[in-house]
């Protein structure tokens, strides 16, 4: 699979751009967090496309962003569980 470039993204409609980024991000995220990959990818797709492109080029920044998203997701899920149990 050829790397995703800014010009490839720019040629696609906005909704398609997120799809293209998601398709690249998902397998990388799935390798780290198989059970949360879909939700983490969904969260990361809220980030700017240009920043997502940089993350695809830099595994380190991608990994730290994934860990950040996992932390946010866990807090969110915990608050939801405690909300439901009341």
């Amino acid at each position: 699979q050829e790397p995703l470039t800014a010009s490839m993204l720019a040629a696609a409609p906005p909704q398609e751009q997120k799809q293209m980024l998601g398709e690249r991000l998902y397998p990388l995220i799935h390798a780290m967090h198989p059970s949360l990959a879909g939700k983490i990818t969904g969260m990361l797709l809220e980030i700017d496309n240009s920043e997502l492109l940089l993350m695809l080029e830099s595994p380190e920044s991608l990994h730290s962003k994934i860990e950040e998203a996992v932390a946010v997701l866990q807090v969110h899920q915990m608050s939801e569980v405690s909300h439901k149990s009341n």
């Binding site: 906005p14 909704q15 997120k18 998601g22 998902y26 879909g38 939700k39 990818t41 969904g42």
Partner: peptide, 26 residues
């Protein structure tokens, strides 16, 4: 209403058209 946030975050599925982020203004 922002109180109902149960479906967040939208889940990405490979091969399925992404529609998690509607109407974002540039």
């Amino acid at each position: 209403s922002k109180s109902s946030n149960a479906s967040w975050p939208p889940e990405f599925q490979p091969g399925v058209p992404w529609k998690g982020i509607p109407n974002i203004d540039p």
